[in-house]
Design a protein around this nucleic acid. Structure first.
Ligand SMILES: [Zn+2]
Ligand SMILES: [Zn+2]
Ligand SMILES: [Zn+2]
Ligand SMILES: [Zn+2]
Lengths: 160, 160
DNA sequence: TGCGTGATGTTATAAGATTACATGGGGCGT
DNA sequence: ACGCCCCATGTAATCTTATAACATCACGCA
């Protein structure tokens, strides 16, 4: 569960740890970490890539956990609103957060070849976006920062 | 047609100049700046905000320039591909470019109150996104950088 | 027990985007 | 002039993504 998602890691513990962390946070914050919500987060955690809402819904349906779009969207809304997952605007898809709960401004690196997505974080009010905003007198409340390109693994595949 | 879109400016000349610039560029590059494509760009230029494809299509339909989605999407594809317009992923909407033709990496500031959108530009491989990418060994090919918040005008309206 | 709040279940529909196929005009070599 | 290719456009149908609206249920609490 490191900040960058392209390196190999112990994935089963990655899932388990993250669920446990979110579970604890929900308890503390008085949020209901219900079966559907938990399952959706697990589904997202199983991949380090973004899943569309309807892909998630398909899996829920197979498991008898709900079959209509609002079921998936509501669970995703909950996860996103509370910082346990993020929406990748560029893909209209969702991904589990790799630093759940911490107040953060995520930055995504999306591999166009293998679809892996890495999450990093940066302070958005600093850097070039912050500078552009200050010049314009604009107050940033939320920032979408998503880069598309090739992850380390896929660069080597195509290159000689 | 300055880089930041929140300041007042001579809008009619802004439209005219931009169309003329794109027209010249198309001629140079051997691209067909057809009536539909021109009209879509004009429609986009009339607002400094992002328009959905179907909003554009509605206007085209009123003018008898085409009534089916592909007409709008094809014109938008042309404009986006050639750098005359941009898609705002966060809004699923499109906006005219304020520096048409120049090879550039746009950064958008979106006012959530009045929907105005300002385009600025920064070199994406520098700054914090570039740093995150380098740390991960990721090669950026394209970056979506969109900030939501309040423009200068709308900050003063809400505040006392 | 009765009430309020928040989660779910379900139907229908809105909004955004693409596929596939038909049509039509301009340039070009013959 | 003719046939051909390329590209833009016209049109129908379909697909994907997302939300609105309303019914139901379970829990905590007065
Ligand atoms: Zn995160
Ligand atoms: Zn990859
Ligand atoms: Zn631009
Ligand atoms: Zn504003």
């Amino acid at each position: 569960m490191d900040s960058i998602g392209f390196e190999p890691h112990d994935h089963s513990s990655c899932i388990h740890d993250c669920i446990a962390a979110v579970d604890a946070q929900c308890r503390t914050a008085g949020l209901q970490f219900t079966p559907v919500r938990r399952r959706v987060l697990e589904i997202l955690l199983q991949e380090h890539r973004a899943l569309g809402a309807y892909e998630i819904l398909d899996r829920l349906r197979e498991e008898g956990l709900g079959s209509q779009p609002p079921v998936a969207y509501r669970a995703l809304d909950f996860l996103v609103k509370n910082g346990f997952a993020h929406k990748i605007e560029r893909l209209n898809a969702f991904i589990a957060c790799t630093h759940p709960g911490e107040h953060h401004a995520p930055v995504f690196l999306i591999c166009r070849a293998c679809d892996a997505v890495a999450e990093s974080q940066r302070e958005p009010t600093q850097g070039q976006l912050g500078q552009a905003a200050r010049e314009a007198g604009f107050v940033i409340e939320r920032a979408v920062i998503e880069a598309e390109g090739l992850c380390p693994k896929c660069q080597h595949v195509g290159a000689a």
